[in-house]
Amino acid sequence: MIAPRPDVAFDGPKDTGTLTLEVYPSLRSPYTAISFDRAVKLARDTGVNLSVRPVLPMVMRGVPATREKGMYIFMDTAREAREAGVPYGNFYDPIGDPVRRCYSLYPWAVEQGRSTELLSSFLSHAFARGVNTNNDRGLRKVVEAAGLSWDEAQTHLGNPGWEDMPEQNRLAMYEAGLWGVPSFRLLDENGEQLLALWGQDRLWLFAREIQRQLDKR
């Protein structure tokens, strides 16, 4: 490797919840799939608040993407996953209904305190375990692995009312000057932006900025 990537590991004194790490994931993003759990771990290890703000996949918002671009992303993600030492590659593309069905469960998962676990489980099953999330059998695996009840989930599955959430998150992401997923923002205790970057390979910069903010105290 020409330029080894700095480690994301953090072992200094923890924040007391004054900083917030915003994460903008998409359930159809390979780059999100290999970085979501690492972003969650970074927030946990550093003690900062975690704010997860899901968005719809670009192609589901009408943004065109060539087949060549899609193939490059999947292949590049495989290389990045190997470098990061995270599972990836046995995937079943969740575009369309799988994403909508999972997002329809998201408000309920938030109420249950398992929303982060739901997204993590979906990404893992779709991009590392090769599970077809387009049917009830696959989605049940996602839900139960997230520590949620499948029987209860079925009463919320497909319900409307979630659609504004990913759109509001997309607008917030764009307003911050970020254009794709996964994107991240670090905010201070007043909600002021300290750092905003796109890309799963930028997490180390957030670890460094969190450390810098804590060192100032």
Rank of each mutant, 00 (worst) to 15 (best):
V131N: 11
A39Q: 06
A207L: 09
S51I: 09
E189R: 14
L178S: 01
A196M: 07
W204M: 11
L187G: 02
R5T: 15
L197E: 12
A3G: 07
D11W: 02
R79C: 09
D136I: 04
D215K: 15
A145T: 00
S121F: 02
L119P: 00
R100W: 03
A39L: 04
L197K: 08
V48I: 00
P98I: 05
M58C: 11
Y103I: 10
D76L: 03
L205W: 02
E68K: 12
E111Y: 10
P25N: 05
E111G: 01
F10M: 01
N159A: 13
F184N: 00
P166C: 00
E152L: 09
G96E: 09
Q112Y: 10
L50T: 03
Q211M: 15
M71F: 07
F91L: 15
D15M: 05
G113P: 09
P94V: 14
A109W: 02
V142C: 01
Y72W: 11
S149R: 04
M60I: 05
Y103K: 06
G47D: 04
G180W: 08
R79K: 04
D7M: 07
R38N: 04
P4C: 03
M58I: 13
D37K: 06
K141P: 01
G177C: 07
W150I: 01
R170D: 13
S124I: 09
M173D: 02
L50H: 12
V23I: 09
E22Q: 15
S124Y: 11
Y31V: 05
G85R: 07
L157I: 04
A196Y: 08
W198F: 15
S51G: 11
K14W: 04
R137P: 00
E209T: 04
E80S: 15
G113R: 12
R67Y: 13
M71P: 05
M60V: 12
A33W: 09
R101I: 06
A172I: 09
G130W: 00
D97H: 08
D7E: 11
L50Y: 00
M173N: 07
R44T: 13
L27Y: 02
L148V: 05
L21W: 05
P64F: 10
W150H: 04
L178G: 09
P13M: 05
L119V: 13
S183C: 10
P160G: 10
D136C: 14
L171D: 13
I210G: 00
I95R: 12
L157A: 03
L27H: 01
V143A: 00
Y31C: 08
V23F: 10
P98L: 04
G161K: 13
M173L: 10
A109M: 01
S35R: 03
D37W: 02
T155S: 14
L203C: 02
